[in-house]
Design a protein around this nucleic acid. Sequence first.
DNA 1: AGCCAGGCCCTCC
DNA 2: GGAGGGCCTGGC
Length: 289
Amino acid sequence: MALLTVDGPLDLAATLESGQAFRWRRVEPSPDGSPWFEGVAFGNLIHARQTRDGVEFTTSPDPESDVAPLLRDYLRLDEDLTAIYQALEFDEHVRQGIALYPGLRILRQDPWECLASFICSANNNVRRIARNVDDMSAAFGSPVTGGADERRSFPTPTQLADAGEASLRALGLGFRAKYIAATAERIAGANTDLFALRLAPYQEALDALTELPGVGDKIANCAMLFSLDKPEAFPVDVWIDRALRDWHFTEQQKPIQRNRMRPWAQARFGRYAGYANQYLFHSRRLGRR
DNA sequence: AGCCAGGCCCTCC
DNA sequence: GGAGGGCCTGGC
């Protein structure tokens, strides 16, 4: 057992269950009520829960001391959330979202797993996306601990390119199978270096991602926000569409079009537009208001 | 039964 | 350049 200390607010459950990542599961309630989560990342099976002191976790097969800095980075525990809140609370609805879910953080995921997961999100629902991602991992990923029925890591681009469209379709990915296979080939062939996009400017990363099959503006912005260090990214999906329409454009006689929302929001919220997006999305999707 | 899911792509105008 | 329709699949 190891511990990550946290400065500032953290809501681990909201962070892991807000539709950014799809491989975390609640496993068992702990005596004090804060749930354990099980996930696969960095080639490890990870169990984690939030306590008064921070994030408790165990790892397998690597020692916790090796994984600790990776998990800290993944959870962005060093992000100054308070400063971000101050920059965004001018907006009434973002402020309400922050008040409802203080400590909801934006993850820093593996770019390939994140991109591929969101390719699965097209015209899909969260539960089936999670199942698609798990099914791909079980079928084509590598074992992490050596046990018989353990979970596997998310497949590499090469593993999915080798799998091919037909076997992905057989898993139940539907029309997304073609996009996953084709994009995996492109990445495996090193035509696009996803990690390099962490250092690229926003527009350059957006242009590179939307060249990939099955990756449009929305999915590219998800990958940029959740894995490529682009906090100004602003994915516009049906939930954000409804939120902005109801909360920010109620008095317009002509409703704003979906494809004009991202530039509008980025101009309004600035370099942390993605955090505004996440709080609007989460509070809207949970249906509390 | 029909609609909707964290869209993208293609066609046609 | 933009509106409209099709698309795998599963749950309600």
